[in-house]
Design a protein around this nucleic acid. Structure first.
Lengths: 183, 183
DNA sequence: TTGATAATGAACAAAGTGTCTGATATAGTC
DNA sequence: GACTATATCAGACACTTTGTTCATTATCAA
């Protein structure tokens, strides 16, 4: 890819990210992104169709990176204690978030959090599907899966909101307690 | 209140509601509300400062109605089995949603669901605070409360999304199982 | 009936969007 | 280094949406 394109794309992402920490997605104008990234109007539109497309691409970038380990790691975890495998995976995920590569923090805890949660949950669902034994059998499967995904997403959001005071290990352990996997 | 105002307000709410079922809040223009409600531009702005204010007022209206029973009902439930009190309360809440007075359905399950969830959760938090014994003591209180609220909100949203196939009693019971209150 | 007030409709400035232009600068290739 | 392709630029453009204003008309409550 042309260096100029890389540079522009990077500048747009950085500007967008900074603005997202300050204000809600809906209240960010293309003009503000232009000014912050210091690029021309037509340049922006040659990279992204709309502001929504920019958001989507950014989410993909961020979460693909964060979950690359979580999802593609060989499922070689200890099957005799598979819940520990999950606990480690969640701990790892939280550490990853704490590293804050790609600036997920501002994005997930910020005013536009809801928008990102949608994408975040898709990745979480894929993760949980790797642990079918965690999904209770005495309630409808989709109901149970939705519970796991939704509550973990909410827990992560809350954790970020508290500036990640709790250590990742503790947060992961407490979460597993709450969903009833603390044997 | 002047009949004219009532009529206008009602028309605006109805129009807004209809539009919310069709498209996302962000993509609804004031002009569309005006046309749908068949009122003048200046009339709208004499009732609501902005589109956001309209959303907020609508949420208050809807949830105040739904939770009026839940929250103000004398906490005269059987303390010896207080979790059953909660189960009944949730069941009651689901029935209320099924009645769909105020058209919560389109609103919670629609494209703009995220916006309403925020308000919905505030009411749910108030509800759970009436059942302190449901909040686990072995994890930080706020973490536990956030889990209850977040997961119930997600469960309700999921339930609505499935056209409320499961009977309220069953959904409430399953939810309590998932949060570990199925003794 | 009458005085108060709500609704009307039309016009308005301001701000934002997405498109298009021709000129300029810079990248990758030979 | 020269050459070609193309990314960026600046700015203008038509268009949509927003929120305000005002004079006029219709409706309410007493």
């Amino acid at each position: 890819m042309d260096r100029r394109q890389q540079k522009t794309r990077k500048a747009i992402f950085a500007a967008f990210n900074k603005l997202l920490e300050e204000k809600h997605f809906n209240n960010i104008t293309v003009q503000e992104i232009l000014d912050e990234a210091n690029i021309g109007r037509s340049t922006f539109y040659s990279h992204f169709e709309t502001k929504d497309a920019l958001l989507k691409e950014m989410c993909t970038d961020i979460f693909d990176h964060i979950f690359s380990h979580e999802l593609h790691s060989e499922t070689s975890h200890d099957f005799s204690s598979s819940d520990h495998g999950l606990q480690e995976k969640i701990t790892h995920l939280l550490y990853h978030l704490k590293d804050n590569r790609g600036n997920v923090l501002g994005v997930l805890s910020g005013e536009s959090g809801e928008l990102f949660m949608k994408y975040f949950k898709e990745y979480l669902a894929a993760m949980f599907r790797q642990y079918p034994e965690c999904i209770r059998q005495d309630v409808p499967r989709e109901f149970a899966l939705n519970h796991l995904v939704g509550s973990l997403a909410e827990a992560v959001k809350w954790w970020i909101g508290t500036k990640m005071e709790m250590p990742p290990e503790e947060a992961a352990e407490d979460y597993l307690k709450l969903i009833g996997y603390d044997h």
